[in-house]
Simulated scan of single mutants.
Amino acid sequence: MSYKTILTVTGSGFGDGDLKLTAGLCEEVKAHFSVLVIALAAPPPIGSARNLSLAWLEEQEEDMRRVDARTAAVSVLLAGNTLSADVTSDYAEFGQGDEAIGRRARYADLTVLGPEVLAGATLKEKVIEGALFSSGKPLLLVPEGSSPTLKPKRVLVAWDSRIEASRAVRESLEMLIGAEDVRLVLVDPVQGEEYHGEEPGADAAAYLARHGVKLTIDRLPRMNRSVADALRQHAQDTATELMVMGAYGHSRLRERLFGGVTKSMLDKSSVPILMAR
């Protein structure tokens, strides 16, 4: 699909790097640039003395002042370019931060998670969960040192035949059509109707070919590597500019406790990744 509105999220403690990066992507595809400035309120103290409660209220007031100041600064930054843009702000309870981000992301075609927020912890997790679980829209993860583009020439599609991977392919279809080299990558594919079919990758390749996607099927052995490591190495070997993959084929709790491809990619990647579920 085409991206007509692109969202990024920032907070009072961040610089303008992610904003400028996302603005560049918006310019590339002539999209509207939407910015959400958000702060997460700490939960109120329980059973605390009155002076601690007052301190908590004062902290909330200071947080809101910081949000207002950051929103004003972002507005000035946006006014200095020719992009169609908007900025909104929110002061959300900590436990509702992902839902607040997800609500805003529903009105965008794509949410961009830039390297500044990605290097953090709390806001990073809220953006990931909000975009992937509360918006129904894809997330573009941009790690430090990478060069993101929405018109990539070389794309790696991590295909595992799950519904999440199918959704990611659909959300990136316009980019896949425009790419010169698309690698449909299957790691240790399993034959069978409930898995990859009798010829792993053939059905997905046929679907994409009907859309005019020029692709190659790469079936990779794990060779004592994790699936994530196999994908990362292949992305490096093929000079991939963008990886497309489904996110959280397993539950979030299972991924957190035992690890998984999504968690590994979120923690360590050298190329931008478009994720959907």
Rank of each mutant, 00 (worst) to 15 (best):
L140F: 05
L257N: 04
S134K: 15
I177N: 01
D203L: 11
L19T: 03
R210T: 05
P152H: 11
P152S: 12
M1F: 06
I163N: 08
L257D: 02
H250L: 12
P44K: 11
P143F: 06
A100Q: 10
A92E: 14
V190T: 01
E193R: 04
R254C: 01
G259Q: 08
V112H: 09
K30F: 09
S147G: 06
V142I: 00
L173G: 01
L118N: 13
E193M: 00
L52Y: 07
L110T: 07
R256K: 14
L139T: 06
A31C: 10
I38L: 05
G47K: 06
P272C: 00
C26W: 12
G201L: 05
L40K: 14
K153Y: 01
G97S: 10
T8F: 01
Q96L: 11
D267I: 06
A49F: 05
R103G: 09
K20T: 13
L123F: 07
P272H: 00
L253I: 15
T71S: 08
K153I: 03
S2A: 11
R167M: 03
H250P: 00
A49T: 05
E58G: 04
K263I: 10
S48K: 09
R256T: 14
S226V: 02
Y248R: 07
D18H: 13
P143M: 04
M275D: 04
K151M: 13
L123P: 12
I273D: 11
S251L: 08
E62I: 12
G197W: 01
H211S: 12
I38F: 03
L78V: 10
L139K: 13
P189F: 00
V155N: 07
H32Y: 09
D98S: 15
P43E: 13
Y195P: 01
A235C: 15
P189K: 00
H211Y: 11
G192F: 03
L215C: 00
L54C: 04
I38R: 08
I38K: 04
A69I: 02
G120Q: 08
Y195Q: 05
Q233V: 07
I101M: 04
T122E: 10
G249D: 09
R70W: 01
P148L: 05
Y207P: 03
E116D: 11
M265I: 13
L110R: 04
D68M: 04
S270D: 14
P143L: 07
A39K: 10
A205Q: 11
T71L: 04
E125Q: 11
T8W: 07
S226H: 05
E27W: 05
A49P: 01
T8E: 09
A202H: 08
